[in-house]
Write a protein that binds this DNA or RNA. Sequence first.
DNA 1: GCGACATTTCCATAATCGTTGAAATATGGA
DNA 2: TCCATATTTCAACGATTATGGAAATGTCGC
Lengths: 114, 114
Amino acid sequence: MEKTDALAALAALAQDNRLDVFRLLVQAGPEGMPAGAIASSLDLPPNTLSFHFDRLRMAGLVTVRREGRSMIYAARFERMNALLGFLSENCCGGVLLRPDAQCKPARRRARVSA
Amino acid sequence: MEKTDALAALAALAQDNRLDVFRLLVQAGPEGMPAGAIASSLDLPPNTLSFHFDRLRMAGLVTVRREGRSMIYAARFERMNALLGFLSENCCGGVLLRPDAQCKPARRRARVSA
DNA sequence: GCGACATTTCCATAATCGTTGAAATATGGA
DNA sequence: TCCATATTTCAACGATTATGGAAATGTCGC
């Protein structure tokens, strides 16, 4: 990840409501979550939320797709992974990450039986 | 690290000049670097730099000590480490960090003639 | 078509941010 | 003491930010 992208991602996460939104999306997993559900979960007016979604999307941290009347937002885990990589490498001596580490959804995942 | 502290640290790093300053301090290592050396290295006016130092200090990312006429700023590695931990845990599924990982100075040391 | 729903866009507002010139503070040396 | 150096503080300024009311857009079911 380049410095410009890292700055954009940092700025996107450096705001109370947006950090909450992103954390919620990380828990929601790759399928994402409709804007309305996020709005009611965080108790934010829809236009305010729309503004923050835009920042997150411009920073590359979320994707959006339409599903019927709803807009479904989802975290871009690989982007967050890249941000962590940038910070580790540029601000932390570069020794922080597990070589095989990948950002993944936080919530319980479907168990894959061996 | 708590959410409030994480937000402060993110906001502190989410600015071009401040990110440069912090990266420089990470390379400089625990002994830190005088403000003047940073100013000339990044070509920033001293009052502008002072403003940014303040933000970094308020966010807990740097310390400062006086040494003669110079103010020596140094990165707080453990704080950066805590930020990475917060992001990993809250925004990344919690699987990113090596259990023994610690932020440390980057290899290169900035040799400074005060 | 119409009406309910879901979300965005537009507009205005107050607050915060980053920068700079000028003045102030602190230290060390002659 | 006076002077040079190093850095901060003060006081502006334009730019950006976060917010919310109101209106617009898009979608679905009838």
